[in-house]
Amino acid sequence: MFQYDFMQHAFLAGTAVAIMCGIIGVYVIARGLAFITHTFSHVGFAGAAFAVFMSWNPLAGMLLFTTTAAVSIGGLGAKVFRKDIPISVVLSIVLGLGLLFLSLTKGQSNAMMALLFGSIVGIDASQVYEMFGLAVGILVVLILGYRMLTFDSFDPVGAESAGLPTRFISIAFLLLLSISVAEALQIVGALLVFTLMTTPAAAAFSLTKSVSRMLLFSAVFAVIGVWSGLTLSFYTNAPVSFYIAAVEAVLYFACRGWQVWREKMLPSVKPEHVSVSTEM
């Protein structure tokens, strides 16, 4: 399998994107931004469709659209962007725009299908460098901002009270998320970006209470999903995205099952026996 250049590229790019998505996914779950992640993937799709229409690099179009959406949505404030209705309005507008650019673009149906479903095995060496660069950049920012981002994600009221710049953290995180979505979209496609952004992290939340271990488990689960997906796809010819989604789902249900079993096994606290005499 590794004798082929395209498989080497796929494993390298897939690993970088999986680690990045696994780590950022922990904060997506903690901040309750799963729906926004889904919206960004469609914004990215519209951006890529626009780029193909303009004969640009699709990644440039995706980054332009998703980062603009991140700054605009972040500027509205957490009270607005955590609500479903304004986000679903944005989602429908960008999906409409994506379809418009799709209809205006002629003879590019393969490129557009790749954006919707992903094309990990079609990645060349220059794209691998591009993805590695972006993933490393995002991970460095996440490492440097780890303490503030973790506090604000898990305890927003406490973070605001402690004087943290919570609005800045919110916008900065949405920007990182939008860039990650644009990158992951090339691997798993707009329809399955959700898979790498939320499922490994959700599985990790079931396994541990420690934030550092959540980050580690989530990254490992994402990498397992991508590696298994690539290997199974190579030998069966079925889409990579399907296998990635299937492996992540199996991991998630296994972790949830283990969590439920463990909670049942925990000793329950017996109430103290109190007798009350009613005799006078």
């Binding site: 490492i143 303490r147 973790t150 305890d155 009221v157 209470k209």
Partner: peptide
Amino acid sequence: VPQSRQMDVDTSLRAWDFVSFGLPHTLRP
């Protein structure tokens, strides 16, 4: 200590991590 806390009750965050959030923030993770 604020009056109310906006925390997801299902989040299995351990107490040690929660307390450490209160430390002064540095770029060292």
